[in-house]
Each structure stands twice: as C-alpha cells, then as structure tokens.
C-alpha cells in the first residue's frame, strides 16, 4: 500500500519536473522548483516512515527551509532586474 502511495507522489514530482524543464519564463521555473520542493518534503516524510527509521526526518525540515530561501531570493532577483531597462 505504502509503495503505491510513494509511486503516486513520484508521479506528481514528474509532472512538475516537466514544467521545470520546459518553462519558458524564469518565474515558471521558480514556481516549479518550489512545488517540487514541497512535494519532495511529503515524499521524504513518507519514505522515512516506510524505511522504519525516524532520524531521517531532519532532512525534510532542511528541504522546506531551502525551498523557502531559494524562492525569496529569486523574487528579489526579479525586482533587481527591473532597474536595467
């Protein structure tokens, strides 16, 4: 049962990965990166339950943190490019 759920979440990551590769605009890619990060948090939480080892949960928190910082810094980058045209 839990393997089937992991496959479902991997399919969701694959769908947003296509947008991550295709995305014509920078914002598309950043949104796809953020979504991939959030989906990967739930994937890692599920994997750490299925591996029966609870110490893996620390990685998920770091994952959420990295997604947040990356998204905000790209937003800052969008505003900075405003001044050159």
């Amino acid at each position: 049962m839990i393997n089937f759920l992991i496959l479902l979440i991997l399919f969701a990551i694959f769908l947003s990965f296509i947008r991550f590769i295709k995305g014509p605009h920078l914002t598309d890619r950043v949104v796809a990166f953020d979504t991939m990060g959030i989906i990967a948090v739930s994937l890692l939480a599920l994997l750490s339950v299925s591996m029966k080892d609870t110490i893996y949960l620390d990685v998920t928190f770091v994952f959420a943190l990295i997604g947040f910082i990356g998204t905000i810094i790209f937003a800052r980058f969008n505003v900075a490019k405003d001044s050159d045209d």
Partner: peptide, 22 residues
Amino acid sequence: PHSVVLFMGFGLGSVILYFLFS
C-alpha cells in the same frame, strides 16, 4: 539565472538520491 534555478533543482534531485542510498 535559468541555469542557477536548474542547478538548485539538480541539488534537490541528488538529495533524494542520497536519501535513498540511506
């Protein structure tokens, strides 16, 4: 900047890979 986003995605994938390698 597109390359940097793709690079961060690369890091995300390799984190999942290391996780699966326990």
